[in-house]
Design a protein around this nucleic acid. Structure first.
Lengths: 372, 372
DNA sequence: ACGGTAATGAGGCACGTGCATCATGACAAG
DNA sequence: CTTGTCATGATGCACGTGCCTCATTACCGT
């Protein structure tokens, strides 16, 4: 046990010190570009290659003193293990799964397309991706599916699912079995540190700011359309939106969220009713990830062009709407970037590497007619 | 000669066919995830591993008939060479150089920082990056520097330089010597196909659209500030900007570009004069990549807040200006993405791989207060 | 002093490819 | 027939790491 612990520490030290020393090392043998190997490590630490191997790979049966000696050598030489050689030796490949909701329209379609695209891209790194569709309204079945996965078949899972205690538990158990996990786009509460997606509060605020700016000082009411306010993403977007409008656009007032529940007829009814009751609407914020249905309805109802419309996510439909000027702006997260980031992060977990967070930060994009 | 030619063809075929076949192959031995090796290739083609090697690496002395047999085997098995193993065998590492202008303020500083960051990130792939500062006003010295590079020291160069025939020639010669080259941010005319950067016409149009929208129907004059209109980037931004304003905002009129030549005193003089002559200014577009000086001047002159200000590039200064509301919007290209994209593309050229273009497309970002 | 055990050394094979050397067979020109 | 050249085969080492087996050493309790 203590052996394992100390080895874990070794990895932390290793990562932290590497950055500076790798440069030192470079300037030393600039011409040859030789990086130290485990053999050099063994020589410097005064141990055998077998012991170096034991320390590097966290095998037990090594005295703390020896572990420290090896770690010192790692620091001194700026050793970085050659991942390619390691993977070659193990003939390792990475099997990842994207667990995505079954429903969904174009946005999810984009995600799936990007996954296939990324698979080609990452094939050189021996990364394979599969998509598994889950029933997002049945936490039990999701949990059961996650429980069926084992380290031998799959190296990591990116999970897009509404938060639920059952799912959260299944994820925890999956991690304990040595499978890398990553909340994807939809976050599970309390797992904030490590996930792939945008800050939905900031996204909502950006929608509010854009809507407010485009309204250009007019006074009036704003309509907010959501699929459901039960998801955490919607709540956060709404929070950011309201705060921005309240603080910076006193002339505007946002109505309570209209929930479509993904049902077109219901959407038509409630949007129509709201338009009738509020003749002073100057802007519409479509908060749902799938904007097609609500936006179509609004266009069909011949809402005047002067009413500003903001929606989320770039899809073929929203792109076209932007060009047709039936939509004024899109708040988007880049689907390709989301997918690639998830893959890189999962691979980073498997390789016990730190990832460059600035690369993995998903930007909140504002799309207008000119920059799609 | 013909041997070399046919081998080149082989690589094209190889790349094209791979995508589909790799999938087939996967479904065949799904459990083992085994990819065919050169040994399998040799067996299938009925030749020896040595001949396979000759074909794969374009060595001469192989009959066309045999080349074809090997190519057929590649297609049949969906062979993909294991880059990691290959690099291991050659103990290859990639030395790249970013040739950047010596002058420049914060934007170039960001670029340099991102290069260092990326170097850490890509160190696992044996990629090393150096920055070499060039004198952007002296095409001769740039050309001389490029001529001094050879394949043995450097695998690829990303070049940010104003266009000039001398530089263009030097780049061509560099390519002929087997060094990968890539125009970076600033493009050289006629090399449009392969470069890293944004579409500056679209960027200018986006600036125009944003400025127009934020002006909210007001009528008046727009000030445009550039460093110099001699660079192609500036011309294109201006083109896109003007077209957008003319077509969609008839109430707005853009003044001729004020050129600062990077000189603060001159900038202060011409901006002051322009403000005095045009009391109806409703918006200012700072087109230069380095916005600090002009923006400071405008803030110092107490131009009213109601005058919309748009600038390019995200730097510590412009970020702060956005927060202070002395700036209303930024049109940006992500520096980190630019750098990583350049590295991936250079590496792709060296490895004779095709790159996933959708990943390498640099987005035109719109930054407001809420999404920095 | 004994056997047992924990810590370490020594060495070797495997992974897939690049690269080099030498041998072999075919075939043509002299 | 010889000689030379071309196309190909056969083989082996190297790259850096993971993983395995089999010594060897030292120290422990009895």
């Amino acid at each position: 046990m203590s052996g394992y612990q100390s080895t874990a520490d070794a990895w932390v030290t290793y990562g932290q010190i590497t950055d500076k020393l790798i440069k030192m090392n470079r300037s030393l043998d600039q011409k040859t570009m030789l990086r130290p190997t485990t053999k050099d490590l063994a020589k410097t630490a005064g141990v055998s290659r077998a012991t170096v191997d034991r320390v590097l790979n966290g095998r037990e049966g090594v005295r703390q003193e020896t572990v420290d000696r090896v770690n010192d050598a790692i620091a001194e030489l700026g050793f970085v293990r050659n991942l390619q050689a390691a993977n070659l030796a193990r003939s390792q490949s990475y099997q990842f799964i994207f667990a995505l909701p079954r429903s969904g329209d174009q946005f999810l379609g984009q995600i799936v397309r990007r996954i296939q695209e990324a698979e080609t891209l990452f094939s050189a790194d021996h990364v394979w991706c599969d998509v598994h569709h889950i029933n997002e309204n049945d936490p039990h079945s999701i949990s059961a599916y996650l429980s069926s996965l084992s380290k031998t078949d799959v190296a990591g899972v990116a999970i897009m699912s509404p938060e639920s205690p059952q799912v959260r538990d299944a994820i925890t158990r999956l991690q304990e079995r040595g499978v890398a996990t990553l909340p994807f786009i939809s976050n599970q509460t309390l797992m904030d540190a490590d996930w792939v997606g945008i800050d939905n509060r900031a996204a909502g605020a950006t929608a509010g700011l854009l809507l407010g700016q485009l309204a250009g000082g007019r006074r009036g009411t704003l309509m907010v359309i959501a699929e459901s306010m039960q998801s955490r993403d919607s709540l956060e977007r709404r929070l950011g939106f309201d705060r921005e409008i309240c603080e910076n656009f006193p002339g505007l007032r946002a109505l309570p969220s209209l929930e479509t529940y993904g049902n077109a007829d219901r959407a038509r009814a409630i949007i129509g009713a709201s338009l009738a009751v509020h003749p002073d609407i100057v802007g519409i914020y479509i908060m749902a990830s799938e904007a097609r249905t609500p936006l179509s309805i609004i266009t069909d109802m011949h809402v005047p062009r002067s009413v500003i419309r903001i929606a989320h996510e770039r899809t073929p439909f929203t792109e076209q709407a932007l060009r047709d000027r039936t939509l004024d702006g899109i708040i988007a997260q880049d689907a390709g970037h989301l997918v690639r980031s998830a893959i890189r992060r999962l691979k980073g977990i498997v390789d016990r590497r730190k990832t460059l967070l600035s690369q993995e930060q998903i930007r909140i994009e504002i799309l207008l007619r000119t920059n799609i």
